[in-house]
Amino acid sequence: MNESGIAADVIETPDTKDFFYPPGGILLWIIILLELFTFGIAIVIFMYSAGQERAVFETSAQQLNITIGSINTVVLLTSGYCMAKCVHLFRRGEVTRSKKQLLATLILGLVFMVLKAVEYEHKATEGLTLGTNTYFDFYWMLTGFHLVHVATGMVILLWWNVTMQRKPQGEALGNLEAGAAFWHLCDLIWLLLFPVLYLIF
């Protein structure tokens, strides 16, 4: 790497057209699929419960803050853009610019968590907690598990940010791609949860 943080060569990447080498690695994609299927099944069970208690679900959904949910969607999608840009720049050998994008991703992740905490605080003060009704049981469990994923993603990215320049570039890229895939998983889960929990009732 030169002084401006630009590596001499563009890093070689494996052929992602091979079924066993999807971007981010096969092991991570097995985890991603399991996570998506788990949340997918939970959403179907949520919809089944809505059919049983339609009035409860309709009145409860009105009490969620759509504005905060929409802002969080924008924040998470923008963090996804920064993460994708980070991987793209790292692959081209522009490590310094790549680290800036990673930092932007982490800041946006933090903004998401703060907004979620504000929303949780409002709901808790209003007495809308676990056990209030079926809708809020689902709300706390699903958004809570999603938030755990965001927090885990942030820890992973923070760790890569610290160790990125200590590893050989090929290995660092593999780690970064895996971390990015996990971060985008948080986007994917939120893109399914947000309309179902906040909008359609």
């Binding site: 992602t16 057209k17 091979d18 079924f19 999807p22 971007p23 981010g24 994609w29 999608l77 996804g80 853009y81 993460m83 994708a84 990015a180 895939a181 985008h184 986007d187 994917l188 893109l191």
Partner: peptide, 15 residues
Amino acid sequence: VAFYFMEMSKAHPAW
């Protein structure tokens, strides 16, 4: 998000 941010547009068609 899946196809462009996660680059699955470059992955095997099965994915």
